[in-house]
Design a protein around this nucleic acid. Structure first.
Lengths: 199, 199
DNA sequence: TGCGTACTATACCGTTCGGTATAAAATATG
DNA sequence: CATATTTTATACCGAACGGTATAGTACGCA
């Protein structure tokens, strides 16, 4: 290693650009020619670096989760002395900011991609990856809510499975509503109602 | 009219088949060859009868709304002597049955299609149609909730705009969750929490 | 029966798709 | 500098895309 010509592009920067394309246009509707044109790299470079389109998407999705979604998720767990309702508010408002941010495409990459799953041109491996991500997210949310019970921020009889499914459903619904043109204010109003039914 | 060879297929039956394909695979990922193979008609017949792919989808979407979604929506308005919470329950449970029905594709055609909007291969005319459908739905829901206030089933200070956005968000979230593999029971539990926060 | 009409089947149009073979250009190490 | 290595750019692959032109076939009407 270290031998040979150097890459003329930054891998993470390129990954971010590709992620935005997938986020905006979806997997199948993002063509290779669009990718290489927007990323500013040649087709063989793309294949040498990321394998193929499916692998590139997989890397983009991981990047999306760790760089964009995870920070919002942390708003729910961090600062546990803060009342749960405030942290839920921070969490939902954070997601809404992300979905409606004019710097990134509208909505949520997961929702966008999940809608494409089971389509004939969508790789089965990616469908499995999405399902796995959903399950992991659910388990993490359950764990967080269980902890809230033990610290007394949620009543002992609260059903963490139902609650985490509910929270996720609202989040996903917000993403679709965002794509439907709802404003940040309207989305926050939705979140407020949801929060009031949790705590 | 009445002159010439007769159509060898039933228009509505064909429309229903096409709708299911779009519902399952989305607009761009439903190819013409798949359509003619599944519909059992030839490509020129399809174009003679429906114009082009975009017009066919538009007709399918109208068919979906009137034949599949409208009956669930009526569960919310009909039998107004029934408590609102019961009608909301009928409405959400009806939608869930539709989304999770094994006879039709999982999820919701609107969510599926809205996710595709703004993609380069998705006709702009269809994007406008989806937005319009969303606005009409919202207005109808607002009208229904306003009426609930006047008959005393909702408090006078209830914000019908926020509430209808919330109800829609939950419905859309349920559709995504359904695609993520959640069971009817889990989806109903989500709806139950949502209903409890409305009435 | 014969004619005009409307539907159907086959074959084809140019374009784009995801992916790759070939070879030239650039760089780290000897 | 020489060479091995890795990147680039160009050109190309077969397949599938949405859509259509041509021509054949079934039917209502006179």
């Amino acid at each position: 290693m270290g031998v040979g010509r150097k890459l003329e592009f930054d891998r993470e920067e390129t990954l971010d650009k590709a992620m935005r394309l997938f986020w905006d246009h979806g997997y199948t509707n993002t063509s290779l020619s669009e990718l290489i044109s927007e990323l500013g790299i040649s087709k063989p470079s793309l294949y040498n670096t990321f394998g193929n389109k499916e692998n590139l998407f997989s890397a983009c999705f991981d990047f999306y989760l760790s760089e964009y979604v995870k920070p919002k998720f942390d708003l729910l767990t961090g600062a546990s002395e803060t009342p749960l309702s405030d942290r839920l508010s921070n969490y939902f408002y954070g997601l809404i900011d992300l979905m409606a941010d004019s710097d990134t495409p509208l909505g949520c990459l997961y929702v966008k991609s999940q809608a494409e799953a089971q389509s004939p041109n969508f790789p089965a491996g990616l469908s499995r990856m999405l399902l796995e991500a959903s399950n992991v997210h659910h388990a993490e949310l359950e764990q967080i809510l269980s902890n809230e019970i033990s610290v007394g921020q949620l009543p002992a009889e609260a059903d963490v499975t139902k609650l985490s499914n509910y929270i996720t459903a609202v989040s996903l619904g917000l993403a679709v509503q965002c794509r439907s043109g709802k404003s940040i204010t309207e989305l926050r109003d939705i979140a407020d109602i949801a929060i009031s039914s949790i705590v």
